[in-house]
Structures are given as C-alpha cells and as structure tokens.
Design a protein around this nucleic acid. Structure first.
Lengths: 175, 175
DNA sequence: GCGATGAGGCTAAGGGCATTAGCCTCCGGG
DNA sequence: CCCGGAGGCTAATGCCCTTAGCCTCATCGC
C-alpha cells in the first residue's frame, strides 16, 4: 500500500500499475493478488488513505479555531495539501464514488468542513449549501492548480485570497 | 472523430479505446493510425472539440447580454453543458494541458469568460482574478456534479444559485 | 487515355498489462 | 508430528496500443 502511494506520487495515476507496485516491492505481479483484489480496488484503497490524510490534517489545523479564522485556515490547508501531493489528489478525483468505502471517507472529510462552519448559526439545508459552496471553491481551485490549469502561476495567492474573502462574505456578511 | 465522441459519451473515458472506435466505424484497429497518430492524440482532439463546443455555445448565449445578466446566463449554460455531456467533460479534465492545441482551446474559452466580464470596469490583473474566480466556481461545481460528488441531488439548483449570487457579489457589490 | 501516387484499408506480429489457475513453501498451532 | 493457510511463484490468456509491410483504388498530371 505504501509502495502504491509512492508509485502514484512519482508517476501519476496512469503510472500506478500493478506491475510497477510489484517491481517496487520486489515481488511478482500476480503475488499482489494475495493482498488486493484488483487494480481498481488498490486505487480505491489509495484514494481512501489520501482522503483520510486530508481529514486528519484539516482536523488538526482547525482545532481551537472558530469562525472566519477556522475557515481561512481550512481553505489554506486544503490548497497546501494538494500542492504537496498533486498526483495523489488528481488520482482521488478520477473515480466516481463507486466504492462505498471511498464514499465514507469523503463523508468524513465533509463533516470536518461542516463542523468548521459551526458557529455561523447555519441550520439544516443552509449548512448543507454552505458546505457545498466551500467544497466547490476549494476543489475547483485545487483541481485547476494541480493540473496546471492556470496560465501564469504568479499572483495565484492573490486569487486564492479573493476566493477566501468571497466565501467568507457569502457566509455572514457582517461577521 | 464523431465516433470517438460517441464512444466517449457512452462508455466514459476508460472505454474510449482505439479498438472501440474501430469497431464502431467498421474498420480494423490499425487503420485508425491513418487518421490519428495515437490514442493520446485522439483524446486530445476530442477534448479540443468539446472545449470549442462549449466556447461556441457560451458565446451565443451571452451575445446581447451584459453585466449580471450575462454572467448568470454563462454560469447556467456551463452547468447545463456539463450535465448534458458529463463523460465528455470528465475526459476533458483528465489530461493536464500538455497539448498545445488543447491549451489554445482553453484560452479561447477563457476569453469568452473574460469578455463576459467586460462592463464591470475591471482592469489588468483584476480582470484576471475575476476570470479565475469564475472558472473555479463553474469548474468546481460542474466537476463535482458530473462525477456524483454531491450526496443528495435535491436542492442542487439552490446551491448553484447561491454560487452565482456569491460570485456576482464579489464582482461589484452594489451593481 | 494512362500511369504514378498517395490516401486509406488490411493482416501479422510484438510488447505491456491485468487477471486466473495451479503449484510450492514454510511457519505456527493442534 | 502433522497440517492448514498465508504468501510467493510460473504459466497462460486476453485485451489493448503500436509498428511494419502489403494492397487497392481513385485522382491528377501528362
């Protein structure tokens, strides 16, 4: 599993192949089937691990903070994670959430976001919408940045700051 | 090329294979190499075509409109396109913009967005930032929706409306 | 009218990869 | 002492991309 993540980080999602993992671990390819059911399952496991990594990291970052401060930190941590592991993030996004375990990991991550928004007094569907808006922002930016979708890298920090401010404004307005 | 798009729409990006295109067009697989250099090149062509489709469609939709009206229509058209051709959109996003032609098509699409923002009096880097924010929003939402990243489909329209309003607020405020 | 030429097809073949089947070994508990 | 399973291995199959080499037929220059 560790080897799989390493291969992914080095060669991207298309390079994440059972043959490559086998080579790195020094076993024959078919031997991997004693540990994992298929290539698809391996990818799902890797995605779950990455998702949980993010969840843990964001949880720590947000602990002891609240309101705009917490949201700002969360958004910056999200971007930081994706910059550190761009291929991992890209691989994560590839598969629709077929896998139930993957879906669960996604829910865990979302709950951190939802909790971060506690304190804004959002109830029911308002909270859902706010969380979705947040996901859209951080994922949209991270995805574009990770695959080099922005032309000039300069000033990207400014763009991100504007996104953070835009989101905060959408939350409370006067808060 | 038409066949390639059809295969993509039906079977997704993983099903877009030279063998499948060959079968659909009724020729042997190697014959395709008389028309396209490689599978990667085929995918790039398809992506360019889709990108240009979007550009054309959005251009038409925005013609004769300005300000918040134009932006709102553009955002809704973007979402509509992705809903109509989710696999196509997913395939488009996969490849980093290695291909120069793909990059050009992307620039064309971005220019429509940029032009739509004309009238807000944005100069230089302000315009760049505003365009980027717009891309982040529409791509983030579309990508999540296309791959089923949202839990419950209900109320998604409301979420999108909020995103549109949030973006408009970030543009002018009082406009 | 006619011959060259090139576009577009084909078969054969090779290499990479995932996956399955069947076998072997070695270790740990009855 | 035995035996059962975890974890490896080789062999083999099938799909796919890709290359090489050959064929045909329309079209264009002469």
């Amino acid at each position: 599993m560790d080897a799989a993540v390493a291969v992914l980080d080095e060669h991207g999602v298309e390079g994440l192949t059972l043959a490559a993992v086998a080579a790195r671990t020094g076993v024959a390819t078919p031997s991997l089937y004693k540990h994992v059911g298929s290539l698809a399952e391996l990818k799902a496991h890797v995605a779950v691990r990455a998702l949980d990594d993010m969840t843990e990291r964001f949880t720590k970052a947000v602990l002891g903070r609240a309101g705009d401060d917490a949201v700002t930190v969360l958004m910056h941590e999200y971007r930081a994670y994706v910059r550190e592991h761009p291929r991992r993030y890209a691989a994560m996004s590839v598969d629709p959430l077929h896998d139930p375990s993957l879906r669960e990991a996604g829910v865990r991550l979302m709950e951190v976001m939802l909790a971060t928004l506690r304190g804004y007094g959002l109830e029911g569907s308002d909270a859902v919408h706010a969380t979705r808006r947040l996901r859209v922002l951080v994922h949209g930016f991270a995805d574009l940045e990770a695959r080099g979708g922005f032309g000039l890298p300069e000033e990207l920090d400014d763009t991100y700051d504007q996104l953070v401010r835009m989101y905060l404004d959408s939350l409370g307005g006067t808060t």
